[in-house]
Structures are given as C-alpha cells and as structure tokens.
Design a protein around this nucleic acid. Structure first.
Lengths: 247, 247
DNA sequence: ATTGTATACATTGTATACAGTGGATACACT
DNA sequence: AGTGTATCCACTGTATACAATGTATACAAT
C-alpha cells in the first residue's frame, strides 16, 4: 500500500526553507500549551461578556462570532455550547443565543448558594490546608493591601484568594460547584471592589478568614466567611437600590 | 440573485407525494418536542454509561460513537463535549475520551457536597413549597411504598422525590449544583436501592423528610435530610468494604 | 542488541457545503 | 383596512472533506 523502498527521501541532506519557516513561525504563547481555537473562542467571548463589550441580553449568532474571531463556525459553535452549559449564554434553537440576563431574584439565589458553599470551603480549608498553602494565602493578602486604592488590580487578587481556599479545601466537587456560580458573577455588573470603602472592608474580612484558618478554627472560619458573603450581597443590594433612585 | 418571477411554484395545484410523505413521516416523539441529534446522542451515551454498557474507564472515540449511533461525528462530538463538561467523560486532546472513573475518595467528596446541598434544599422546601407541591411529594412516596420489592422501579421514584424537593426550594442555582453532582452518581456503581433493606430504610427517611416539610419545620427537614445523605454514604462504604473482602 | 530517526496510522481539530427551521415580509382575498 | 396564506431569508443543524496531531512501528546506524 505505502511505497516501501528503503531510501525514500534523503531528508537529512535537504532541510528546505519552507519547513524552517513553518517551525519558526510557530509561536508558543507564553501561557505554555497550544490551545485549540475552540478554547480561544470560549475565552474571548467570556472576556467580552465580562468587560461588557457584549452587553447582557445581546443576541449572538455563530456567524457573527466566527467573523469577529476570524475562525470558522465549528470551534465557535463548540465554544458557545460550552458557555451555554456554564449558564453564560441562553441558547435558542435555530435562533442563536442570548447573553444571559440575571435579575435581583437570581442574584439572591446565587448568594444563597454562595453562603452555603464558601463557608464550607473555608472550614474545610482550616482543617486541611498545608502550611505552605496558608503562606500563599498570606502572600496574596499582602499584595491586596498594597493595591487597595487600585480596585482593578484587586479583582484578580480577590479571585486568587478564593481559589486558594477552594484548592486547600480538597474537594473537587465543592470547587466545581463554587466555580459554576462564580462564572456567572460578571453578569451581575460591576464588582463591589471597584468602590474603595468596600474594597477595604473585603480586605479586612479576608484577613479575619486567614486568621481563623491559621488558627485551624473551622467554626470561626465558616462564620467569618459567611459574614463575608452576606456583606457582599448587602453591598450589591444597596447599590442597586441606590442606582434605582438616581436613574 | 434569486429568481423572482411571481409564479415560481404552483404548489397549491400540485400537492406532490413527496411533500405528503415528508409530512406524515414526521413523527412527533411522545416526549413532545423535536430533539436534535446532539441531544439524542447525549442521552444515549449517558444511558449507556448508566446501564454499564459502556464501562467505567472505557475509551470512547468520536468515530466509534458516531457509527454506533448512526449519525455523523458532528452531533456526537457536541454530545461528548457536553458530557465532558458534566464530568462524565474525561477528554484527552487528540486521543478520544475516557469514561470517568471515581474512586472512594471522590465518593467521599461527592457526599460531602451532597450533605451540604440537599439539607439546604429540604429546608428551603419546607419554607417555600406550595400545598400542591407537598401533595405531589406525598403521591410519589405512596407510589414508592407500592414498589418497595421492585427496586428497579424505585430508582426513578427516588429521583422524582428529590427533584420535586429541589424545584420547591425555588433556587435554580441550588438545583443546578445538586444536579451536577447527581449526574455523576451512576459512575459510583449500583444504587443502594437495589438492596431491599436499604430501599425500605430510604423510604422511611423520605417519609420523615416529607413530614417535616409538611410541618414547615425547616430545621427538622434539614436534619433529617442530612441523616439521609449520611446513611446513603455509609451504605455505599459498607458495601465496598464487603465486596473488597469477598473478591 | 540498543538507540535514534523516520514513516504509517488512527483519531481529533477545523473548514466548508448543504439541508432544515422559524420568523418576517409581501401578497391575495375578503 | 384587516386577515390569512405563501414565499423569502438569515441562520442553525448536520454531514463531509481536509489538515494537524500523537502514538506505534519499522528501519538504520552504531
């Protein structure tokens, strides 16, 4: 079937330029691995939603997204399906997808679940975290303290703090459940942390949580974490109430 | 571009047979809506995994699945991606997917989350369920009582009972979180309910939960539901311990 | 014999072509 | 004018073709 003659091609003696250019043009993204177009599409759409470039409630078609991202419909379709199962997009059979729109009641439900899961994660973390994980938490909070006036820089640190706690909780299902809720938070609008007083309050609560974890006091960690979630909800509700009056 | 002549097709005067057959051959599945092939594939694969026809740890390729299901790779691929994000399949880039394999530690983590979520759902249900929803719960338990000796029939009823509680809890995120965990239970092997004593115990616990809900006693509902989850875990652990000795 | 290299093969990732769907629009009829 | 019907159109759902990838195997050189 295949030509089997021994000396089929003396490739050693003919390193052609096209092969070289193919190698050198392969740029390795600093992130490390080579990502499929579907993953790229997924991240790009997610980012665009988070940054509000695709507004809540917008209608998104596969064709438009494919043109925008410069790829064919196939990987875009795959990405949209994934975002749909994450709850970021609402699929309408044959009619594209809508960027999910959450109302105040949805927010209440989200925080009800967060109030359940995050304290449990903090408690588990207090019981199971290694010393080096606790050090890592400490380091993140030190960096938080340095950027309290720059809320935009605070958001990834906040996320990192919560991620480290979940990882130390040693429960992949708990982690996934919280992650599922977290991924929808961008749909709620601007973070509380963009407001400096709220940022300071959140940081202070983080310190309390870390202290409880370091003391291996699971009950206290749970209690403080619950207060943290509640405070976050109250801030959002207050802001919504406020903006309703000004508008 | 498009032929625009007015009388393009006199379809009224020529009701051809092919059109008729197309109409009559459109079978509406009793479930109601017309489902896409991707959904069919998703359900079929899920069912095959649940029934053990595709064993845990098996290697599944898009091509094989497409041939098996009698459709092209595209909808199969979509289904597999979905099952992957549900956690039923483990994707290996360029190398197909494995049916996820859960060990005892995974089971412990799953039940840790269930012990968190299901009691909360029961409590919320006690607070928020309508009378007709409580009646529906009652009806399911009556049907349970009738088939206690037929465990296979018990499983869907058990599932229905838990689904009704979640629905009455009025929290879509709580529902989704529990559903995410539930979908992985088939990976743990045979249900406890296949054993008649366990089935009777579970039914008795369901009755207690319903009683607490009917009394609108959220604390009690939560407590009983937690005991129910714990009991379920203990049964599974005991069975594993037992089978380890016999094997 | 062992190691390094190249080729073959199976399978996934991506693009494209085509059929099917549902809404919108234009038209006829009352 | 208002209502019902047929046609059009943009888009999705599905199939298929092609490129890219990773593993396994065969071969050559030492």
């Amino acid at each position: 079937m295949a030509p089997r003659s021994g000396s089929k091609r003396p490739s050693r003696s003919a390193p052609d330029a096209s092969a070289l250019s193919r190698i050198t043009s392969r740029r390795v993204p600093p992130g490390g691995e080579k990502r499929s177009l579907a993953e790229v599409a997924c991240d790009e759409i997610r980012k665009a939603i988070r940054e509000g470039r695709i507004p809540t409630g917008a209608h998104l078609t596969e064709i438009d997204a494919a043109a925008w991202l410069g790829m064919s419909r196939t990987p875009v379709r795959e990405a949209m399906r994934r975002l749909q199962s994450e709850g970021l997009l609402l699929n309408q059979p044959f009619r594209g997808a809508l960027v999910m729109r959450l109302d105040v009641e949805d927010m209440r439900q989200m925080f009800e679940v967060r109030e359940l899961l995050e304290p449990a994660a903090a408690a588990a973390c207090a019981l199971r975290a290694t010393e080096s994980e606790i050090d890592a938490l400490h380091e993140v909070l030190q960096r938080e303290a340095k950027v309290l006036r720059n809320p935009a820089a605070l958001i990834p640190l906040n996320r990192q703090f919560h991620d480290l706690i979940m990882e130390a909780a040693r429960n992949q299902f708990l982690t996934k459940s919280i992650a599922a809720v977290y991924s929808l938070i961008p749909l709620l609008g601007d973070s509380n942390l963009l407001d400096e007083p709220h940022a300071r309050a959140a940081h202070a609560q983080h310190l309390k949580i870390l202290k409880a974890i370091r003391a291996r006091d699971a009950i206290l960690a749970e209690t403080v974490a619950r207060a943290h979630v509640r405070h976050s909800l109250e801030c959002r509700l207050a802001r919504i109430e406020g903006s309703r009056q000004t508008s």
